[in-house]
């Protein structure tokens, strides 16, 4: 899965109008909360077969950091 598709996937999960890019700070996204982050974990597992640690996701500051977790 390409970077753009992952960003689009995260945008869908959050159901946000915000324009997301690699530099977007997660805390600046109104919809970013614990439910959103657990949705992201589920997304990686279901769509990409990737098992991301909750702590690693918690350490992410930006959308780009999440992409790095997915090896992008």
């Amino acid at each position: 899965m390409e970077k753009e598709q992952i960003i689009e996937g995260i945008k869908d999960l959050l159901d946000t109008e915000a324009d997301l890019n690699e530099g977007t700070v997660l805390d600046d996204i109104e919809e970013w909360d614990s439910l959103a982050s657990i949705s992201v974990l589920a997304f990686f597992k279901q769509k990409m077969g990737l098992k991301i640690e909750a702590q690693a996701l918690k350490d992410c500051k930006t959308v780009g950091d999440i992409l790095k977790l997915a090896g992008k």
Partner: peptide, 11 residues
């Protein structure tokens, strides 16, 4: 604290 609880649960 939803984030901490979620992290705890998955760990």
């Amino acid at each position: 604290d939803g984030m901490r609880i979620m992290q705890f649960t998955l760990d």
